[in-house]
Write a protein that binds this DNA or RNA. Sequence first.
DNA 1: CTGTTAGCGCCTTCAG
DNA 2: CTGAAGGCGCTAACAG
Lengths: 336, 336
Amino acid sequence: MTVKDIARAAEVSPMTVSRVLSGGKNVRPALREHVEKVIAELGYHRNENARSLRPGQRSGLVGVLITNIGNPYYAGVVQGIEQVVAATGRRILVATTNEDADLERQLLSDFLGRQVEGLVVVPVGQDAERFTTARLNDVPLVLASRTVAGVAADAVLIDDVHGAHEATSLMLEAGHRRIAFLGNKVTVSTGQRRLRGFRDAFADHGSEPDESLVVLGLQDTEAAEVAMRDLLGRAEPPSAVFAANNRISTGAIRAIAKATAEGVVATPPRLSLFDSFDFADMAPFPLSVVDHDPAELGRVAARMLLSRLDGSAGGEGARLVELPVHLVHHDATVGH
Amino acid sequence: MTVKDIARAAEVSPMTVSRVLSGGKNVRPALREHVEKVIAELGYHRNENARSLRPGQRSGLVGVLITNIGNPYYAGVVQGIEQVVAATGRRILVATTNEDADLERQLLSDFLGRQVEGLVVVPVGQDAERFTTARLNDVPLVLASRTVAGVAADAVLIDDVHGAHEATSLMLEAGHRRIAFLGNKVTVSTGQRRLRGFRDAFADHGSEPDESLVVLGLQDTEAAEVAMRDLLGRAEPPSAVFAANNRISTGAIRAIAKATAEGVVATPPRLSLFDSFDFADMAPFPLSVVDHDPAELGRVAARMLLSRLDGSAGGEGARLVELPVHLVHHDATVGH
DNA sequence: CTGTTAGCGCCTTCAG
DNA sequence: CTGAAGGCGCTAACAG
């Protein structure tokens, strides 16, 4: 069904229908109502794709590229993006990269072909080339949560360095020296930044981390659980642990809980972790959480993108926002 | 940039470019390679919207309408849908209804205007009218997680009735009689179905639930926590509780843990709940979980939709799939 | 206030 | 194997 069908049924020209669809300006009220009735009766929906073909018309589409929507953290990010983008009448096209750089490139290309007005991307690797304005046909881009060195695009990050620094400092001040670091790949900027915060805290304290307790490249919960168990089983286990993201914390908590229950360790190590989770306040042992709001990250990213779309950002260069973190302590008294 | 630009740069006709873009059939290999090089050099992306304007061409878009992507359960559903849909080269358009029936209607209309090939919807209310094939312009629809009475569309549900029945029966068999039910709105089919399973279990046992312990209409975690606290504070608190979904369980667990810590109740009530969560095995008291996989629900929904799109479903009428649940018991020994 | 013309980017059909 | 013409649905620009 097209404007022509409506025009025929309402006995007007397609142009009148088009005008009614765009708000009814410059159409006699009676005629407008008549056309609106016909549209409602026939259940007609304007073809937005055809519409966006005309020059000057926007597609109303924003592309969102996330590593994994199944991760509640990124789900929160998407929620924030959707909330802000939807308020402008635009819709989001969502795809998952699964940390696959090739897939990411294909999806970027696909989204550009679908005429997205802008992109919000959680980048997989460190290839800046694919994010140049030339490659993106001048489509505005906002990097979310992670950056890519050498990309001149807006970015919203968590204040990873400070978060890790603060949490680590507190453990050092509490007298801990054998502090383990469980992190993911350093090719991911969050991994690198959180590790830097950890090391900086030691440096500022005038000491150095025990490198044998620094475990990197942990990609999922299972790997983290194995790594944590291994650490706890050593002759000299760490007295404290920093877990660098939510998947890693999940594995670490599970390993610590099991080891404690099985008597492998007498007292659980002091645990600090990045990213909060639902029952952080009810963990079976004390926890320090570097907390922040994923939905807020999504909202800020979306707003930065929209400011490029409506021109309110002017010709500003790449902007970088680092969202604050909050260190929250749970003393494991609830329910135990 | 358009095919014409490529054509000019490659010194061929737009038609030859088009042919190369569609696989290069009927183009001299040397010419094809030349055109491909120009396309790559100029970073051209075919306009999929213009392409889909031509008759017989598909838009490659599937609309997904979810009540709330921030809920990890629905995030899992979206993950499953995306996985299956992406494998066919299609993309998903995602929007959130926030349990708002009006918004749902607008979004359905918007998606139809964007030429989605199909829809996967977690419906908000019980208005069947908006889901008629006429209203949807014959765009195939799959209802996910919830149904709407009177809608002749494919649907994938969790086996809510059995799940609630089984969990309730076990509590009855363990000798519990004062069993509370914490549920959401009965206008949502899952709420209704889980309540039915609860009641049926009592009927099959030859008894009846205490209606003063049946609390409905709980929309979020906070409301559930308040309701649970209220129940525990009564002169005759329930000895067992059934929480009908993940948001409700979260509130209930928190209330129970606090009440136990504060000494309001001596022993926590026996808790059974629908939908699993990350640390179910580490809760501070025993738990029975009616578990099921949200991503699988998404995958099944997407497959049903695709079978309509490629015609492999034939002219079959509305199909209903009920995914099995698994009752899992956690005895709260880990870490406590 | 209403209608006609033309063209957005692409591809099916038909010539060559 | 390659190109020219025409139209998918829509709406600016220009009549009337």
